[in-house]
């Protein structure tokens, strides 16, 4: 398996505030790297480093073994690393195919007669979506009519079509119900099977565990563990994430005390 991106002891400080430090992880082709952590754990800072929004203040990024510094998101995109943010960068009222090519439209003709190649764009959208396992009756429908999971898939398919080898998915399941979340997980697996390196950011171990190959657990800006799947069970992951002390404390606090039971009688 090829390692697409390798982060070595990466850290970022904003002024004197250390957001993250000493993080190492690999994005490998055909594998899913899950990054887990609570709010404020440093997930978004790490994404911003991987996607070229921030340059790390310590450590290095290697792309295909070569040391690289991303100056902008464009640099990361050119290196084949695409990021799908939570709002998906879609325009709800526009047709699926127009959304698919928004900002990178295909054109034909010359001079002032240069125009959209609508037939090709419709066809490619249809093809790319069906490779992700979505068959739309018609790519003419506004993207806002698709379900949350399908919209996620369109955004993934778009990133793949425009040359992404690694895609970073920022909390793609957090706003979704159980059913839609499981659809998104299926698409993540599909993207993985197509040979992409997938970074899946979430705070939900139940979403991460079934689909992940490697797990990076973050807490307060530090790595609290980087595991291959076989080294980890979902129980251990949950415990690590919550912090076992805190969990024990919480369990004690929530326990019913004998005698304090209040059962309503009707």
């Amino acid at each position: 398996m090829t390692t697409i991106v390798q982060a070595l002891n990466v850290g970022k400080s904003y002024g004197t505030v250390l957001a993250i430090s000493g993080i190492s992880a690999e994005i490998v082709a055909g594998e899913v790297l899950c990054i887990l952590g609570d709010n404020g754990a440093g997930k978004s800072t790490l994404i911003k480093i991987l996607s070229g929004v921030h340059t790390p203040s310590e450590g290095v990024l290697k792309v295909y073994g070569e040391e690289r510094t991303f100056e902008s998101p464009r640099d990361a995109l050119d290196a084949g690393i695409a990021t799908v943010y939570q709002d998906l960068a879609v325009v709800p009222l526009m047709p699926v195919w127009r959304n698919f090519f928004l900002g990178s439209e295909l054109r034909k003709g010359w001079g002032i007669f240069k125009r959209l190649d609508t037939a090709a764009m419709r066809r490619i959208t249809k093809e790319q979506l069906s490779e992700m396992g979505i068959s739309l009756r018609n790519v003419e429908q506004p993207i806002g009519t698709l379900s949350g999971g399908e919209r996620q898939a369109v955004a993934i398919a778009r990133a793949v079509y425009f040359g992404a080898q690694a895609i970073i998915l920022d909390e793609p399941t957090s706003a979704l119900g159980v059913k839609q979340a499981s659809i998104v997980l299926t698409y993540i697996a599909k993207a993985r099977d197509r040979g992409l390196g997938v970074v899946f950011i979430t705070h939900n171990p139940n979403h991460a565990y079934p689909v992940g190959d490697r797990f990076l657990l973050l807490k307060l800006g530090k790595s609290i563990g980087y595991f291959a799947k076989k080294e980890l069970t979902i129980e251990k992951m949950t415990a690590l994430m919550a912090g076992s002390d805190e969990m024990t404390n919480l369990a004690q606090k929530l326990e019913r005390k004998p005698g304090s039971r209040t059962t309503s009688k009707s």
Binding site: Y85, D87, L88, A89, V90, V91, P92, L93, M94, R98, F101, L102, G103, S104, E105, R107, K114, R115, L116, T118
Partner: peptide
């Protein structure tokens, strides 16, 4: 009508009016 429906500029007009942040993110 031609500009709106058949050119890149038209696509961008819909994009900018429909969801300006998305339009920015895709580089319009």
């Amino acid at each position: 009508s031609w500009v709106l429906l058949r050119t890149r500029t038209g696509n961008w007009i819909f994009g900018v009016g429909g969801a300006i942040n998305s339009a920015r993110q895709v580089g319009i």
